[in-house]
């Protein structure tokens, strides 16, 4: 017994994803919300890379790299929105942002 079975990695992946989900649903501060989204993406990445090792192929790692690119783009736009909103009004709360609708 030298290696760690894949199921443990998947467990960590699920735990990170669920913590991120909890953060997304309970936090009202857009900055912390984006942090929680990062956690969810990382949890998914662990599963992708884990299955990549399981099937002895590179594909899962490619997907993980693409996810990182999407995460970078998402953070840039998200933080841009946060800063833009912050300059307009001084309170940051995603529930108040419903007024931006339409």
């Amino acid at each position: 017994m030298s290696g760690v079975p894949l199921v443990f990695y998947l467990g960590v992946s699920a735990a990170m994803f669920l913590l991120g989900l909890l953060g997304v649903m309970t936090r009202r501060n857009p900055l912390l919300l984006l942090l929680a989204v990062e956690l969810m993406l990382n949890g998914a990445n662990i599963a992708l890379v884990g299955f990549s090792r399981h099937w002895d192929t590179t594909d899962g790692q490619i997907f993980a790299l693409v996810v990182m690119v999407v995460a970078a783009a998402e953070v840039v736009i998200g933080l841009g929105l946060v800063v833009a909103v912050f300059r307009q009004r001084l309170q940051l709360n995603v529930d108040d942002l419903a007024r931006l609708r339409g």
Partner: peptide, 14 residues
């Protein structure tokens, strides 16, 4: 799926 077993050795994937 065989995810509870000892992982098999892999080639150059990373």
């Amino acid at each position: 799926l065989a995810i509870r077993e000892e992982p098999k050795p892999v080639g150059d994937i990373g």
